[in-house]
Design a protein around this nucleic acid. Structure first.
Lengths: 238, 238
DNA sequence: CCGGGAACGTCTACATTGTAGATATTAGGC
DNA sequence: GCCTAATATCTACAATGTAGACGTTCCCGG
């Protein structure tokens, strides 16, 4: 076997000199960097250093930094599994919502990319991994009996709410739940009480935010509303 | 001549030489720069040049570039008027939604800031202008009879959906509506038809997206769902 | 009128970034 | 062995944010 792949040792520690590089390896390293140290830590030089390679060599696997960012978002979105053939479309949508939420909590630093990267590329030209969820959910809905254009509307409302919720939750997310309330109170205390009476009064409720149930209730509302307004197939159980 | 800079004569070319600078002026110039040329055009040097000032002088009005970005988002959000004393809370929420949508369309390049900047600052420490809508909408809901904590839930669902919709719409937004369909078709044509049959079939519907009614219907669904689930005061007319 | 202090403005300098382009190194075919 | 093409690395450059030193202007109490 003279293939260039040499699984002598993974890049644990400082060894791992010269394994063959690949796009996947590069993107995985980039994602790790972002997860560990934030978006602005992802520079060509830092990434090259993490891979024990010359920074310039990375341009073979991503045309430029923007393409690298796109690659990272695609990689993260690939973690989301969608089963397009589930007849229980409501249950499926609910599960996907929770999965996406967990994914966002696993990679909070990537969320800005998730929501803003698509803004700079017209829909048809996005990385395929980004479009796959759209296609699969459309399939889910159409198979469930929605007209194609209605499926599009449902998808928009659904994903719109989903992304909005994720942004909301990450805004209120603070790492240490003990420190959370203290920090919040501290921060809120700064607000002039004349101008922000209700916000200050809500400090406690703000402190114990439960994203999962908040999301779930939102989805419930949305689904019931959709069913009513779109004359959808009301498959509730079997 | 003794001093190279003489304020006596107006600068040849672009006027407006030496008016006193202020935070508002700086932020307004920054916003204009972002609106005209995009986010990455907003550098200290470019901004200084737009104001005919030394870039370093700007640090008097914004501690650093991040603070400047925060200032821009605050400035944009200030364009949103909320009347906290309207008894028709549903109508008010609907109007705000449309206003925010129009605001986003007026400043598409600022939207990434709108949705990501709060992620880097804990709630209590944000610029006050950013928190004002929250406070006012809470007031609106509480005055309408919601319990404080329910008001918070409603706010979250509402703003979540709203931000999600804006992101959705801006993604599909292409400047020239004639070019729109062409570009879309072109882009979609690139997609492998085996993998993306429904997306490709929906090209036409994607092309004539109507954000306003899409948003309006979403709000309707949300409000009806909320009313049902939260035992809200069902003030429909007067 | 002045003269001193504070606010404001400008210049230079430096570390870091993305990336073009030249150069070195390696692999495979004869 | 050598020749060509791919691949890896180095050097270089323009642009960025921003610290720190230096000038200039303004105001206010004497």
């Amino acid at each position: 076997m003279t293939t260039p792949q040499q699984p002598a040792g993974d890049d644990a520690g400082s060894g791992a000199r010269k394994n063959r590089l690949s796009r996947e390896v590069v993107l995985a390293a980039a994602l790790k960097l972002v997860d560990d140290e934030g978006l602005e830590a992802l520079t060509m030089r830092r990434l090259g250093q993490a891979l024990h390679r010359d920074p310039m060599g990375l341009y073979r696997y991503a045309a430029n930094r923007a393409a690298l960012l796109d690659g990272v978002t695609e990689l993260v979105l690939d973690e989301l599994a969608i089963f397009g053939d589930d007849p229980d479309w409501q249950g499926q949508l609910r599960r996907i919502a929770h999965d996406l939420r967990l994914l966002a909590l696993r990679h909070p630093n990537v969320v800005p990319l998730l929501v803003t990267r698509p803004l700079s590329t017209p829909l048809g030209l996005r990385p395929l991994g980004t479009l796959r969820p759209l296609e699969q959910i459309l399939g889910l809905l159409i198979d469930a009996g929605f007209a194609a254009s209605d499926a599009l509307h449902v998808y928009r409302a659904y994903y719109g709410f989903l992304y909005g919720h994720i942004l909301n939750e990450l805004q209120e997310f603070i790492v240490d739940p003990d420190e959370n309330e203290a920090l919040l109170r501290l921060g809120l205390h700064r607000l002039p009480s004349k101008e922000f009476p209700r916000l200050r009064a809500l400090a406690h409720q703000l402190a114990d935010y439960d994203g999962a149930t908040e999301l779930d209730e939102g989805i419930t509302i949305l689904l019931s509303g959709l069913s009513a307004h779109l004359a959808a197939p009301l498959i509730k159980s079997g």
